[in-house]
């Protein structure tokens, strides 16, 4: 059991030391969500990442939080994060302006199965802010449209006012080779679109269950019910991908906070197959 020889191959010399990035633009998406467009300020020219990965964002003097990257992996010269102002750090972050700086550590974690999904129908299911971590995968897959079968985006959010990336959704919906369905929980008469939870859209969504890869991101309860609908249609638990969220302090597997069963969300995830998560999702307080 004792390891006599230890091999040292650091991939990052100081994984806990952030890099300083400058805010190029702040875009308010809805009343409580916003997008930061960042550029490196230390001579670095790009920030390569894979769709689905996340960064640790540090607001000077306030603290650090994990946030998924929501920009285009093919445009690594810009770093884009969309988040909701819910906690101390994200609230402070929402008050930052163009020209302010922020600390970044990353990118961390596993990524969406962009390659594995080739030659398959791809169904994206996003709930609320869950559209943000899926957007890089949408960019990647749309950029190589010919490699995929049908592409379907099912997006559920609380109300029409909560809709994220409004203009982009309209552009995607206007394309003949993408199917975009948006549904909200609550709407007044001005809303002409779907009302109901996003899981309602799955039974009739146009995809071939035997040849489908589904990418799901949203709160755990939404992902649980979404998975049930996909399984009912015959999609395999290994073709169903989810992204998980837990408290994180280090993002590199040392702090222990993000453990879920035998997994560390930060390094084994955040993207997992439903097969990996199935049992854990059925347990309380794990």
């Amino acid at each position: 059991m004792l390891e006599q020889e230890l091999v040292f191959e650091p991939t990052v010399a100081e994984p806990m030391l952030p890099e300083v990035f400058r805010i190029q633009r702040v875009k308010h998406e809805s009343y409580d969500t916003f997008t930061l467009i960042l550029e490196p300020s230390n001579g670095r020219e790009s920030f390569p990442f894979k769709a689905g990965q996340f960064n640790m964002l540090y607001v000077y003097g306030v603290g650090e939080v994990p946030i998924s990257i929501s920009g285009d992996p093919n445009q690594p010269e810009m770093l884009v994060h969309t988040t909701r102002a819910v906690g101390t750090v994200t609230k402070a972050m929402s008050e930052l302006k163009r020209g302010d700086v922020i600390g970044i550590r990353g990118p961390f974690g596993s990524s969406w199965p962009i390659q594995e999904a080739e030659h398959h129908d791809v169904v994206f299911v996003a709930g609320g802010i869950g559209l943000a971590p899926l957007r890089p995968a949408l960019y990647e897959i749309i950029a190589r449209r010919e490699k995929y079968g049908r592409i379907v985006l099912l997006y559920g959010t609380r109300s029409p006012d909560d809709i994220l990336y409004h203009d982009e959704l309209e552009q995607w919906r206007a394309r003949f080779d993408l199917e975009v369905y948006v549904t909200v929980d609550y709407a007044d008469k001005s809303w002409r679109g779907n009302v109901g939870v996003v899981t309602n859209l799955i039974p009739k969504a146009p995809f071939d269950p035997q040849h489908t890869v589904a990418l799901v991101c949203g709160p755990e309860v939404m992902m649980r019910f979404t998975a049930i609908e996909f399984l009912k249609r015959g999609v395999s638990p290994t073709s169903l991908y989810l992204t998980m969220e837990r408290n994180m302090k280090c993002a590199i597997g040392f702090c222990g906070h993000c453990q879920l069963g035998g997994y560390f969300i930060c390094k084994d995830g955040p993207v997992f197959t439903y097969e990996q998560m199935q049992t854990l999702l059925s347990l309380w307080e794990v």
Partner: peptide
């Protein structure tokens, strides 16, 4: 579906 709406899923 209604129960899920009550859960405030998102």
């Amino acid at each position: 579906a209604t129960r899920m709406q009550v859960l405030d899923l998102y």
